[in-house]
């Protein structure tokens, strides 16, 4: 395994790209680290990786990494990725999104990508808030939590993103946190190796715009909170719903094999081209 220094040298863009714009104590660096470890463990080639993002703090991830990188518009990363993957199925497509990016403005694209089962990996940085714009409530902000647009406490019930993509038909769904870095790396690795649409939801911490307003003003407190709320799926199976109140399940939540979209389309092309050729011969 590469040392941290070797890992950074191998995968990060060093010219002009640093310092990064994430706040001190942000969890995004931890997620990026896990992604790079997973990529290195599998041995994917940099030329064959396309990393695509939307808008927000997560959206800046691709600019730092030495892959084919595409920073799209807010919420549309999965739709851009869909076109790219169909045009070039040999690429390993990794989509990184925030919670607002993936499930508010981009929610429609996300659920349809799940049902199509195109071979790509979506990694959702869920920090429960719109961080870049300064802390407005998102579809995953907990009930009664405070935000700049919910100063009296949020009265919308949050999405459980992993459950959402599971129901929408994703063939691999996993969840972890920025506290559980080893597990996170392992899950991303499995997601990258999965044939089909895979989603990894990462509960991450934003002390600056979320924690500060919700009695978790520093990164350590936030990471401890992640540790407390995480329940491995194996353990959760034997727990009562009231015991799971306020908790999140972690680990591999769904893993199944279903026909992959690009492969099915390639088969259609093979048949249609054969038929068209026969047609011209007569």
């Amino acid at each position: 395994m590469l040392s941290n220094k070797q890992l950074l040298e191998k995968y990060l863009r060093h010219d002009k790209k640093f310092p990064h714009l994430w706040c001190p104590g942000c969890g995004n660096g931890t997620i990026l680290h896990a992604i790079l470890l997973a990529i290195d463990a599998i041995g994917l080639k940099k030329d064959e990786i396309a990393m695509i993002s939307g808008i927000g703090c997560s959206g800046r991830t691709p600019v730092y990494v030495d892959f084919n990188t595409l920073h799209t518009t807010h919420g549309r990363a999965v739709a851009f990725a869909t076109g790219l993957k169909l045009a070039k199925p040999s690429l390993h497509v990794i989509v990184v999104m925030g919670d607002g990016d993936a499930s508010a403005i981009g929610g429609n694209h996300l659920i349809h990508a799940c049902r199509r089962n195109i071979d790509m990996t979506a990694i959702i940085y869920n920090n429960s808030i719109y961080g870049m714009t300064g802390g407005q409530y998102s579809p995953t902000t907990p009930y009664h939590a405070k935000a700049t647009t919910a100063t009296h406490g949020n009265i919308e019930r949050p999405f459980d993103l992993a459950e959402l993509v599971k129901t929408a038909g994703a063939t691999f769904v996993a969840r972890s946190t920025t506290y559980h870095v080893r597990q996170l790396t392992n899950l991303i690795e499995k997601a990258l190796l999965h044939k089909g649409f895979s989603v990894v939801e990462v509960i991450t911490h934003c002390p600056t715009t979320f924690g500060r307003r919700n009695k978790m003003p520093d990164p350590v407190t936030m990471v401890k909170w992640e540790k407390e709320i995480a329940v491995p799926i194996e353990k959760a199976k034997n727990m009562k719903p009231e015991e799971l109140e306020g908790k999140i399940t972690t680990g591999i939540l769904v893993e199944k094999e279903l026909p992959e979209y690009c492969e099915q389309y390639e088969e259609i092309i093979r048949q249609r081209m054969k038929k068209a050729k026969r047609g011209t011969k007569k």
Binding site: T72, A79, F80, A81, G83
Partner: peptide, 12 residues
């Protein structure tokens, strides 16, 4: 999604 996908494909 349609225009996003064609931009993605063109980049491919």
């Amino acid at each position: 999604g349609s225009i996003a996908a064609i931009i993605g494909a063109s980049i491919g």
